[in-house]
Design a protein around this nucleic acid. Structure first.
Length: 169
DNA sequence: TAGGCCATCTGGTCCT
DNA sequence: AGGACCAGATGGCCTA
């Protein structure tokens, strides 16, 4: 073989080696990227309401569930705002707070402050307070705050209320 | 055993 | 040129 021929072969070998090296590095980056994506999905799973016995949500289920959950929370807040803006709609408030017993899952029952929050009797009008605030306004404020707290404390019920254990959009 | 889910590899495309 | 992103291909694992 000529000198030029040998160097050509050597050069091709070098290029192949370089290509292989680039591919290996690219694979490594891609793997890393997917791991990051999965970590983000895990983080998302961790803030979604699930039960201990539930199998881990798949990727697509996680995304759909998150979509529905956000919708349910938005809807809950919207209703809370409505409840706040429309005075004397005790019936609405009561129906909003009423969680069907069939929906009550295997959760620890509400305790202390929380237990009364789900009790509609909490919202019945009472006498004026020392500052002279109308009981209705106090009730509305309390109602609004309670709903927000309830969202944090009882995500399962919120989801259940809106029948969002189905994963369809 | 078929089907679903997943991780990984790969080549193409776009961006810096 | 190199990195990020994407979609298709492939093979492994699990479950009904």
């Amino acid at each position: 073989k000529t000198k030029r021929g040998r160097s050509k072969v050597k050069c091709e070998g070098l290029v192949t080696k370089q290509k292989k090296n680039r591919r290996v590095k690219a694979n490594d980056r891609e793997r890393n990227r997917m791991h990051n994506l999965n970590s983000a999905l895990d983080a998302l799973r961790s803030v979604l309401p699930t039960f201990p016995d539930d199998a881990k949500l798949t990727k697509i289920e996680t995304l759909r569930f998150a979509h529905n959950y956000i919708w349910a929370l938005t809807e809950t807040l919207r209703m809370a705002d409505q409840c706040r803006l429309i005075p004397n709609h005790h019936e609405d408030r009561e129906s909003f707070f009423h969680i069907p017993s069939s929906c009550m899952m295997d959760l620890a029952s509400p305790t202390s402050v929380c237990s009364s929050e789900w009790d509609s009797s909490t919202y019945s009008p009472s006498s004026h307070d020392a500052d002279g605030h109308s009981p209705d306004i106090l009730v509305e404020e309390q109602c609004y705050g309670n709903i927000k707290e309830a969202i944090l404390l009882y995500p399962h019920e919120i989801m259940c209320k809106y029948c969002f254990f189905s994963f369809f959009f």
